[in-house]
Design a protein around this nucleic acid. Structure first.
Lengths: 190, 190
DNA sequence: CGATTCTTTGAAAACAGTCAATCTGTGTGG
DNA sequence: CCACACAGATTGACTGTTTTCAAAGAATCG
């Protein structure tokens, strides 16, 4: 499974064979079955995680039991609770597998150490953070400026992959509406 | 006005006198009157901008003429269109002054060059991006998981400063609701 | 097949937006 | 200094959208 990660890394920057070995040395593989937790609210998240197969989600559960999905992650995406990672505090979010999945884990301390000695890795992380920032900004913008139907249209445009793989009630949760509303929107689209 | 910026920088990291001079050498001061544009939709944004006095907003205008505010920035905040800055494409957003303001500008090329030679500056930028990422994630989470009234409550909690300085119709726009709705929410709060 | 999850539907209620009017305070020009 | 214009906030009546609750139908999985 490390090969997929290696392929991803090489597509983003140039790494020497030795650097790649250093990375592989600290990478562990975790297989998750559908519905299995990678992180549960209240635990402390201490990894950087790369999805090499499958699909996961990050979400919270409110006082009424309703789930609110913050992110999805499929192959070649990173996932984790940066808030908990940075602060060392218990996570406010859950992460679980939507499909049977494989994630690669690197402990924070080891990842940070590698970033010190492998400039390409540090740059990759910075670039990733930068792109994520812009993606989040876009999401905020569409969220505050469009109707439920328009949000769904944009979601289909931007993430056709997600729309295919992810159950509708989760898409609804991601978009901040109920599953009934999304169902009715879909009825009116055709 | 550079002194305020210097104070901010020194509060975040250690800079030598020479480094500080290098920064000052590329910094220009721009004074803006209330309502004056710093950036208009369609222009290319090529700066990093630091607010040393006043208050500004980043917003878009939709096809119906409605404004949607993405961010506010007061003293010691950064502002700009990262999307346009990174891509070189015309900005989708406007930035203008809500109060008479003073911003410090550093051209992108010069800023990037300084980041190469001043590690503390590069680190500051990374830390800032990291914090902004988390802040945006929080905003997304509250936006998709709370009612209009709860969003306003949380806004008051998180940004009491903004609530004091910023006209209500702009707060409403930032929260993704109409000014009438916010007005009615406030009536029911007391 | 039976159980569970997922999606759809309907009816009623809650919520938020629209439009139009009024009220307030501020600042500007005469 | 006043009159006026203008930006901002509020209100009411109405419309439209979204949620809620309850139920039933479809799809999936062991």
């Amino acid at each position: 499974m490390f090969e997929l990660f290696e392929k991803y890394l090489r597509s983003k920057a140039a790494f020497t064979a030795e650097e790649m070995q250093q990375i592989e040395a600290v990478t562990t593989i975790k297989r998750l079955r559908k519905r299995q937790f990678l992180l549960q609210e209240g635990e402390v998240w201490t990894y950087n995680a790369f999805v090499s197969k499958g699909c996961l989600r990050t979400y919270s559960v409110d006082t009424k039991g309703a789930e609110h999905i913050l992110t999805f992650a499929v192959e070649n995406w990173w996932i984790g609770d940066l808030q908990s990672l940075a602060s060392g505090l218990p996570a406010r979010f859950n992460i679980d597998a939507i499909e049977d999945s494989v994630v690669l884990l690197i402990r924070k301390e080891e990842f940070d150490r590698l970033c010190q000695v492998i400039p390409a890795l540090q740059q990759l992380v910075n670039a990733l953070l930068h792109r994520s920032f812009l993606a989040q900004q876009n999401r905020i913008h569409t969220t505050i400026s469009h109707s439920a139907e328009e949000k769904y249209r944009l979601f289909l445009q931007n993430f056709p992959e997600f729309a295919r793989r992810i159950p509708q009630h989760m898409v609804a949760s991601y978009l901040g509406m109920t599953t009934e509303t999304l169902s009715r929107i879909r009825r009116n689209l055709v």
